[in-house]
């Protein structure tokens, strides 16, 4: 198939950025979206032009490195997959495809389609863990966990940290990402110990980093490649409220 690509080009964080159109011809319908971009980049390199920068790594939908806003949707038109898992058979011959980076203030553009998502790491560093050190822990079967809770925790833990939820949200809210981690630990007895401190610290960090608020449009869930449920946001709100109410007055 022959395609026209309208790609966001931005040399660096300080550059203004603009759309540039490219033609790619003879694209195999069986190739993935990123392989199609590889073909474009090979062409650009041969011509001595700067190839389009984008993040990617595992190319099987689990590392969370790839992003891309394709025709107005994070990770493109298909549901429940990442950009690297999308194949060109979802597009029509002769189509014009618009490709942009994630657009959110806390995710500044580094170059072209690459953005800086280190804000997510900072939220985790603020409290997205259970404070155990290596060694000296109880036997793995010492604390039984109801299967239902373990399964729900796993549903939440499936988050790949790609940032599509933030990109999809009109408020650039990170609620789904934070809620997924808060929920995972809130559902497990090991995580209950620090649950109150955790949710407060993570929410405070999220606010401090400039992510917006949740106004319940559920765009995040619709665009999440791992289909993480917004029920996690409800759980986080409950955890947060309980933590606030229970917080000692003198703090």
């Amino acid at each position: 198939m022959d395609l026209t690509l309208k790609i966001w080009r931005q040399a660096s964080a300080n550059d203004k950025g603009r759309f540039v159109s490219y033609k790619v011809n003879n694209v195999s319908a069986d190739s993935s979206f990123l392989e199609m971009l590889d073909v474009l980049n090979e062409d650009l390199v041969i011509k001595g032009e700067d190839p389009v920068a984008f993040d990617h790594d595992c190319r099987e939908g689990i590392c969370g490195a790839c992003s891309l806003y394709i025709n107005g949707r994070p990770h493109g038109p298909d549901r429940g997959i990442t950009t690297c898992q999308m194949h060109m058979r979802h597009f029509k011959d002769g189509e014009t495809i618009t490709i942009e980076p994630w657009r959110a203030k806390p995710f500044p553009v580094i170059k072209d389609l690459m953005v800086d998502r280190s804000a997510f790491d900072k939220i985790i560093q603020a409290g997205g863990f259970i404070s155990v050190r290596t060694g000296g822990v109880p036997d793995a079967n010492a604390i039984p966990i109801p299967k239902r809770d373990a399964d729900l925790a796993m549903d939440a833990a499936a988050c790949i940290g790609c940032g599509a939820c933030v990109a999809a949200c009109k408020n650039a809210s990170a609620m789904l990402f934070v809620a997924a981690k808060v929920s995972q630990f809130a559902l497990l007895p090991q995580g209950r110990v620090e649950a109150k401190e955790r949710v407060q610290k993570m929410v405070a960090k999220m606010d401090e980093l400039g992510f917006g608020n949740c106004t319940n449009t559920y765009a995040c869930e619709a665009e999440c490649p791992k289909e993480i449920s917004v029920a996690n946001i409800a759980r986080m709100n409950r955890e947060f409220l309980v933590a606030k109410v229970a917080a000692p007055k003198d703090k």
């Binding site: 863990f129 259970i130 060694g135 109880p138 036997d139 497990l188 090991q190």
Partner: peptide, 9 residues
């Protein structure tokens, strides 16, 4: 043991 203590589901 370690992973369970860390909250690996």
């Amino acid at each position: 043991d370690q992973c369970v203590a860390q909250g690996v589901p």
